[in-house]
């Protein structure tokens, strides 16, 4: 077998695929964060916990109700999304008139509660979830597990679906208008508070969807969200929250960079995104696709 840059191609492309999958999660999560921040002006710290809830919902649906993966793919995001809407109505909606920092603190507290409850109930060792599409194809230069190919393809579909929804549909134009001028949109007779609740539910649902996709790849673990969300924050800082396509591009791009780092300099694979964040802040503080606000 030939070698690329002194690395066997299986290892290189395998890590690249894993990077692409992580990138897909970064993209979906930062997309949800950006949509929520745009309208609510809240950085949703509970996003990681809600991603974890998506994975657990998948596991529980199978374990307790016999709902298979494909059912959970729809049911889990909806259920977690509804839970998110409840949180928004009960807690977040009381803070909109205050400094944005309070939203961050509140959702941080919510994340602690959710994570603590799941750890209390399920321990922190993690639960396995059976791969719904076992097997894979040998492409000659690498082995491609079908499930991972599905995750990458479906994530791309979800990302561009979200982009289409926000940028090209009437509903999306309401959302963008309300992000710019809330009062004016309300004056035109749009029910903005309801829109805010639905938007938060949508963003939370996206996080849960990423959780469903992650369940068969990583073990379902109460801690899976809190470590991921910090990386996603760095991704958001690098990309800036101004543009949907920017968030998608940054997410996938950074996943690939991380994958490459795992091959060539594994010691830095945990930190490479943070280092990139520092560099971007030095050169372009507003982020690659962002505008200073």
């Amino acid at each position: 077998m030939f070698e690329l840059l002194g690395v066997p191609p299986q290892a290189l492309f395998g890590q690249l695929l894993l990077g692409l999958i992580n990138g897909a999660f970064y993209a979906i999560l930062s997309l949800g964060l950006a949509v929520i921040f745009g309208l609510l002006n809240v950085i949703n710290f509970a996003h990681g916990a809600q991603y974890m809830m998506g994975a657990f919902a998948t596991w529980m649906l199978l374990q307790y109700f016999g709902v298979p993966y494909w059912g959970a793919l729809v049911a889990a995001p909806v259920l977690v999304g509804i839970f998110g809407m409840l949180l928004e109505r009960l807690f977040l909606s009381r803070l909109y008139h205050l400094d944005h920092l309070y939203g961050l603190l509140l959702t941080f507290g919510l994340a602690l509660i959710i994570e603590g409850l799941f750890r209390q109930q399920f321990g922190s060792s993690g639960l396995p979830y059976t791969n719904p599409i076992p097997g894979g194809a040998n492409l000659g230069f690498m082995f491609l597990p079908y499930y991972r190919a599905w995750v990458v393809a479906f994530s791309l579909f979800v990302c561009f679906g979200t982009w289409f929804l926000i940028e090209k549909t009437k509903l999306g134009s309401y959302l963008r208008a309300a992000t710019e001028k809330r009062d004016l949109v309300q004056a035109f007779g749009v029910n903005v508070p309801r829109m805010i609740t639905l938007t938060y539910g949508f963003g939370v649902g996206l996080a849960a969807l990423a959780g469903v996709l992650a369940a068969p790849i990583y073990t379902v673990n109460p801690l899976m969200g809190s470590n991921l969300i910090i990386v996603v924050f760095a991704v958001v800082v690098i990309g800036g929250m101004g543009s949907i396509l920017g968030a998608i591009l940054t997410g996938f791009g950074l996943g690939i960079v991380e994958g490459f780092t795992k091959v060539f300099y594994p010691e830095a694979s945990n930190t490479v995104i943070f280092i990139l964040m520092a560099i971007v802040l030095m050169i372009r503080p507003a982020g690659l696709f962002g505008t200073q606000r």
């Binding site: 009381r94 309070y102 603190l105 507290g109 750890r119």
Partner: peptide
């Protein structure tokens, strides 16, 4: 109480932000 500490800390966060800023 183990993991409940985390839950209680979270609850204090939420309560303080909502009621006792």
């Amino acid at each position: 109480f183990g993991e409940w500490v985390l839950v209680i800390q979270g609850a204090i966060f939420v309560t303080t932000v909502l009621l006792l800023r």
